[in-house]
Amino acid sequence: MNIYKPELVEIMDIIQETPDIKTFKLQFVSKKMREEFSFLAGQFAEYSVFGEGECTFCIASPPTRTEYLECSFKIAGKVTGALNKMNKGDIIGLRGPYGNHFPLEQMEGKNVVFIAGGIGLAPVRCIIWNVLDLRDKFKDVTIVYGARSVSDLVYKRELEEWKKMDGVKTVVTVDPGGETPDWTGEVGFVPSIVEKVAPASENSIAIICGPPIMIKYTFPVLEKLGFTEDNMITTLENRMKCGLGKCGRCNIGNVYVCKDGPVFSYKEMLELPQEY
């Protein structure tokens, strides 16, 4: 078997989330793949634009919804630039799912706190819907999401949806200066908003995804609130090529982020060499 050969997927729909972030709704071309493909929240895939190459991002739709696969990407380099030029009906490649996943079982019966910044909401969105689709298994759900400005907020429609849900506390914030005159949400950086929201740490687990700087300053806030090191979960976004634990690019110490990760608890992260 050729582990490097992708499956073909068709772009069924494109959603312009922000000026530089898009979401693709994807469907496998092969009927067999449509039926057989399964994954767990937190796993990622390699997406190809033939002629440009591959790039790595998480699967942003939950495993509980199988009609489409969704991914969200920010235009940053060569391949994401090429993806940006693709249209509805175009064919791209997909290899995956790869990597480990969020500890759904560990989360069951607990209060779940989701904290995300910018496009970091993509992997978190996957697990949020996963949790909400199996609502009875979890206790209180808190979502804290922030972006640089109002126009940089992704999944806007879903943020509104979550706000209206019972038993889900959704707080959306933008960085100071990023607000618009009609903005009714919070203004402030994610870590300080988390401090303000102060989710209870008793029987709780937190999932944190976003820019490294946000993650760095959110951990101490959660620690202060009483979250233990193994109840703070994040993802690492190292540069990857193969996704298969071979090419040697994503290694941090003896850990292959693409296979042993991308999901790590804060406890696991502290054991890694500080090289990410």
């Binding site: 033939f50 190459g53 193969c242 071979k246 090419c247 040697g248």
Partner: peptide
């Protein structure tokens, strides 16, 4: 054994 994965175009398509 580290490697890179690249696409090399031959012509336009």
């Amino acid at each position: 054994h580290c490697f890179d994965i690249v696409d090399e175009q031959c012509g336009t398509c």
